[in-house]
Nucleic acid binder design. Sequence first.
DNA 1: CCGGTTGTTCAGCG
DNA 2: GCGCTGAACAACCG
Length: 242
Amino acid sequence: MPEGPSIVILKEAAQPFVGKRIIEVAGNRKIDLQRIHGQTVQEFVSFGKQFLIRLENLTVRIHLLLFGTYRINERKETAPRLCLVFDNGEINFYGCSVNFIAADLDQLFDWSADVRSDSWDPQAAKIKIKHHPDMMVCDALLNQDIFAGSGNIIKNEVLYRIRVHPETLIGNLPDSKLAELITEARNYSFDFLRWKKQFELKKHWQAHTRKKCLRCDLPFSKRHLGKTNRRSFFCINCQVKY
DNA sequence: CCGGTTGTTCAGCG
DNA sequence: GCGCTGAACAACCG
């Protein structure tokens, strides 16, 4: 479900509830959900993989993790972690983390790190990533402080596009390749969003879960790499280790 | 039917 | 206090 672009889709789907009052709250999350009963939705915000529901005096933060799902105006068999009912419908969240944030969102979130947002700042990303010369590029693309919203699919697709081996250290990456890395992290996020909306995301995968390289026809390597130890699909022939 | 995963946090350890 | 590891969470696909 949830790399950043999927959260953008959720935000768009939830728009009918902006300005609406929560007339009923339920869910199996072990916090006092009734705190938000009666509050009005000011706006829905996406930040990376997080979905924020900004209310009058606090914000609900939802993270769908690996398996989280949601339903709008319908319910699943299983009990929702959080259910919000409005006078024009309801939204249900399952298998996710739910927390309340009382702090100012601008203090908490670095909006410039969200690769998919208008606030994305590639120059800021360049400065941040250069602080980690010993970090592998595969870990950098999963670092939410630098590339908020980028996940394992985006990681694999971006590294294949720019022909860089996932174990390349940031400090060894030529400046031109670093620039490509930052540019393509954003580009692929937009492609991901467009394809996901058309229900054809998987069709466009060139690296993720693929068995062989489209460029040279050699078998892909599939290994768990980096400190994040996540699946990497890559071509040792076409992707250069700097 | 089982194994694996588009993710993150936290406890426990050395 | 640090970094590392593994567990926990929980749903769906192949």
